[in-house]
Design a binder for these strands. Structure first.
Lengths: 145, 145
DNA sequence: AGCATTTTGGACAAATTGACCAGTCATGTT
DNA sequence: AACATGACTGGTCAATTTGTCCAAAATGCT
């Protein structure tokens, strides 16, 4: 049960802030910008990756790049104490992009990303058929405004 | 009115796919992985940036890194034809991270990220006071499961 | 004070980048 | 068919960056 998460200090956070703005910034440039030795940035970055504080690097893409994708947010109500079971089932659905517990009128909020309307439709059906899901409400995300 | 967006071809998409998985991959490595000359990758990448298909590079951070942040999804109902006005007002609220029109029981879906519960509370109040907002339902996102 | 860890500044070879260039290929045009 | 255009290739080159060392200095902890 190794669960003690690494707690980033101020320098770590400054490194991360820079990398969030420019994930391809060179270590040399970072070290200059932060006023520390290059080796230090290198060590910190290694540690941030090892400890899982940083998950990886990626590229930000224009919003409509994946134009074919269907996005929606689905509110889910779970009956009784079956939440854990339901979560396990939901986790197995690839199109569920993120899943949060919530406190409002609903129990779970699922972020759905499907690659077609038929995939999307299948996901809805699958979710509603899960034992313990008593109610749900889905809002298709249309244009981003 | 220059609005004609650059349409990425297959090679562009393969480059982007690789960069999504590893945003720090070197051009040399990309060129080897994709089987094209380095100059080609270099040119494509430049063009993808120039045309705004790629917005920039960043780092993926552990979900609970910004632990102090309060996240929620807010469903909003708008009365009559005031949607455009309401959107304009909502767009001025910094804590509204993303905003989509939708087709379900609601008219808008807002993704909220505040840095404290009091900020969050203020946002809720502001939204509800906007003229044209007839109803809303907010779900605080608790743990990610 | 004494020890462990981190940071620093320096070094070095290897890798990567940016900028070129001439030649080839595919495409569409006249 | 001949041509112009643009993209791709494979190559070079200098400059930058990276990975990997090292010893000394600084820092933190007991």
């Amino acid at each position: 049960m190794e669960n003690a998460k690494y707690i980033p200090d101020d320098l770590d956070r400054r490194i991360i802030a820079h990398l969030r703005a420019d994930g391809r910034a060179s270590l040399s440039r970072l070290s200059k910008a932060l006023g520390v030795a290059r080796g230090t940035v290198q060590n910190r970055l290694d540690r941030l990756m090892e400890t899982g504080t940083l998950l990886g690097f990626t590229v930000r893409v224009r919003e409509d790049y994946d134009a074919q994708s269907v996005r929606a947010v689905m509110m889910i109500e779970v009956v009784g104490k079956s939440t854990t079971q339901v979560i396990r089932r939901l986790r197995g659905i690839a199109e569920i992009y993120s899943l949060h517990t919530t406190n409002g009128n609903w129990d779970l909020v699922a972020n759905i990303r499907a690659s077609s309307l038929s995939d999307f439709d299948r996901v809805l059906r699958e979710v509603r058929m899960i034992d313990g899901v008593s109610n749900s409400e889905t809002s298709l995300l249309l244009s981003s405004v």
